[in-house]
Write a protein that binds this DNA or RNA. Structure first.
Length: 436
DNA sequence: TCTGGGGTCCTAGGACCC
DNA sequence: TCTGGGGTCCTAGGACCC
C-alpha cells in the first residue's frame, strides 16, 4: 500500500506522491468543475471551443466577468474583473451572456454523477462539491483510483472536466483541487498535511482575501508555514476569533462539522435577496419604485417557494459614487407577501434616500426566517389568506409561462402604480388582479 | 480598471432586561 | 441615587466566496 502517484489526466505529469497510507482517517474529495460556465456555454455553442471566451455580459456593459476560458485567462482576464477591462486586455475575446438555467441543469447532472461515488455529497456552490469518500475503498478502490474513475465518468456523462483534490480534511482537499487545475488530481496523503501547506501563500487558504492577506503580511506572515509557526495567542491578539481559526487552518484542520448531514440543517437558507444595478444611474422615483417593486416580488416569490416568512427586510442603496448603505427593519409579523415587503422597502427608501442623488444599485433582502407567520396586523387574517392564494396561483403561472406572464395591476390593496418595467423584454405582460 | 449578483459569517454599538 | 455586569436582540458595515 505505498507509492500512489497523482497524475494529471490530460498531460500525464505526476503531481505529488507519497508512500504513507492510513485508512483510519477520513478521506475527503473536493471536486471543482473546470471553467464551469465557459464549458457549459461551449456545449451549447461548440464554435466557442478553443477561443478566448468571457461569460457575464457584453464588452461595453456595466458588470464583471463571471468566468473566463483558459485562453482568455492568458491575457490576464479573470472573474470579477470589469467587462470593459476584459475587453481592453483581450479585444478578440467572445463575450457571452450568462445562462443560469443551463448551469443549474448541468449542476444537477454533476450532482448525480457525484452521488454515484458517495452517499455524502455536499454541493457548496453550483460547480463545486465535497464528497466524504471514507469507507468507499471496497467499492471504488483507493482514493486515486476512485478519483480517476470519477474523472472519466464525469467526462463521459456530462462532457465536462473537473479537478479533484483529496485530503483528510475539507480544507486540504479544497486547496488541492485548486492546485490541480485544470483537469487534474492532487492527493495529500495522511500525515503530510502540514508539509504540503507550509510553502503555500496565505492567500491560498480559503477565507483569506486581500484584506486579511495585507494584515498577515504586515505581521511578517506570508506563507502558511509562517502562520503555523506563530502561537495562537499572537494570532488571537491581532486577528481575534479569525486568528484562532486561521491557526487551525494552517495545520490543515477544518472548523466545525465535517458534513452538513451530520449536524442537520446546515444548508437551510438564512437570507434571500435580489439586487439590480442600472445601466445608467437614475434619480427617477417612478423608475426606482418600479425596480423596488420588482425586486420585492422576486424575493417574495422565493420566500413562498421555500415556505419561509421573513421578519427582517433590508434595503440596499448604492449611489453613483459607490457609497453604499443598507437599512433594515424587522416587522412584527413575518411575511412572504409582495405588497407587505414592498411597502416596507419603499418606506425605508424614502426615509433614507438623499433626495435627488443618483442611484447605481438597489437591493432587497429578506432574512430572519420562520416557517409560519402569525396572523398579522398589517392585513386581517382573511385578507392575508386571499393574497396568499392569489400570489401562489401567480407563482404557478409564472413557472409555466415565464416571468412576464402575470403582473399585479393597479388598484389592489397596497396600491401599486402601473409598472414601468425597465427591461423592455419583460414588459408585454398582461395586467391581471387576483381573483376575488 | 471603474467596479455584478447571490450568499455567509463576523464585529461592534446601542437598547433593553434582569 | 449611582452603578455593576451578563445576555439577547437589532442594526450597519465589511470581508470573503463563487
Amino acid at each position: 500500500m505505498s507509492g500512489y502517484m497523482s497524475v494529471c489526466d490530460s498531460c500525464m505529469r505526476s503531481r505529488y506522491w507519497c508512500s504513507a497510507m492510513n485508512y483510519s482517517l477520513r478521506t475527503v474529495f473536493h471536486v471543482d468543475m473546470d471553467a464551469f460556465f465557459v464549458s457549459v456555454e461551449e456545449l451549447f455553442d461548440p464554435s466557442l471551443k478553443g477561443k478566448p471566451v468571457v461569460v457575464g455580459g457584453q464588452r461595453h456593459e456595466r458588470g464583471v466577468v463571471s468566468a473566463a476560458s483558459y485562453e482568455a485567462r492568458k491575457f490576464g482576464v479573470h472573474s470579477a474583473m470589469p467587462l470593459r477591462t476584459a475587453a481592453k486586455l483581450c479585444p478578440q475575446a467572445v463575450f457571452v451572456d450568462g445562462h443560469p438555467d443551463r448551469y443549474r441543469t448541468c449542476s444537477e447532472q454533476v450532482y448525480s454523477v457525484l452521488s454515484s461515488f458517495s452517499p455524502q455529497v455536499e454541493m457548496v456552490s453550483i460547480d463545486e462539491a465535497y464528497l466524504d469518500m471514507s469507507g468507499t475503498e471496497r467499492l471504488h478502490g483507493p482514493p486515486l483510483l476512485a478519483a480517476q474513475k470519477l474523472h472519466h465518468k464525469m467526462k463521459s456523462e456530462t462532457q465536462l472536466n473537473c479537478s479533484i483534490g483529496i485530503g483528510t480534511s475539507r480544507l486540504v482537499a479544497k486547496v488541492c483541487s485548486g492546485k490541480a487545475k485544470p483537469h487534474g488530481l492532487l492527493y495529500v496523503v495522511p500525515g503530510q498535511e502540514t508539509k504540503f501547506l507550509a510553502p503555500l501563500d496565505v492567500r491560498d487558504i480559503p477565507g483569506v482575501g486581500k484584506v486579511t492577506e495585507q494584515k498577515l503580511n504586515s505581521l511578517g506572515i506570508r506563507t502558511v508555514g509562517d502562520m503555523a509557526g506563530k502561537d495562537e495567542h499572537f494570532l488571537d491578539e491581532h486577528l481575534g476569533k479569525w486568528g484562532l481559526a486561521l491557526a487551525g487552518k494552517a495545520r490543515g484542520e477544518d472548523a466545525g462539522a465535517w458534513f452538513a448531514g451530520e449536524i442537520g440543517d446546515l444548508d437551510a437558507a438564512k437570507s434571500i435577496s435580489h439586487e439590480h444595478t442600472y445601466n445608467e444611474d437614475t434619480a427617477d422615483v417612478t423608475q426606482i419604485e418600479a425596480t423596488l417593486m420588482r425586486l420585492s416580488e422576486m424575493v417574495a416569490r422565493r420566500l413562498r417557494e421555500q415556505k419561509f416568512h421573513a421578519r427582517t427586510l433590508q434595503l440596499k442603496l448604492r449611489y453613483r459614487d459607490f457609497t453604499t448603505i443598507t437599512r433594515a427593519h424587522s416587522v412584527e409579523t413575518p411575511t412572504q407577501l409582495d405588497n407587505e415587503i414592498f411597502s416596507e422597502i419603499r418606506r425605508l427608501f424614502h426615509a433614507n434616500w438623499r433626495k435627488g442623488a443618483e442611484i447605481r444599485l438597489l437591493g432587497v433582502q429578506a432574512s430572519s426566517f420562520s416557517g409560519e407567520s402569525a396572523q398579522g396586523d398589517l392585513l386581517s387574517g382573511q385578507e392575508r389568506g386571499k393574497w396568499q392564494q392569489a400570489l401562489t396561483a401567480m407563482d404557478r403561472v409564472r413557472e409555466r409561462f415565464g416571468e412576464s406572464s402575470v403582473r399585479i395591476g393597479t388598484g389592489m390593496k397596497g396600491g401599486f402604480r402601473e409598472r414601468t418595467h425597465e427591461n423592455p423584454a419583460a414588459l408585454p405582460g398582461k395586467s391581471k388582479p387576483p381573483n376575488q
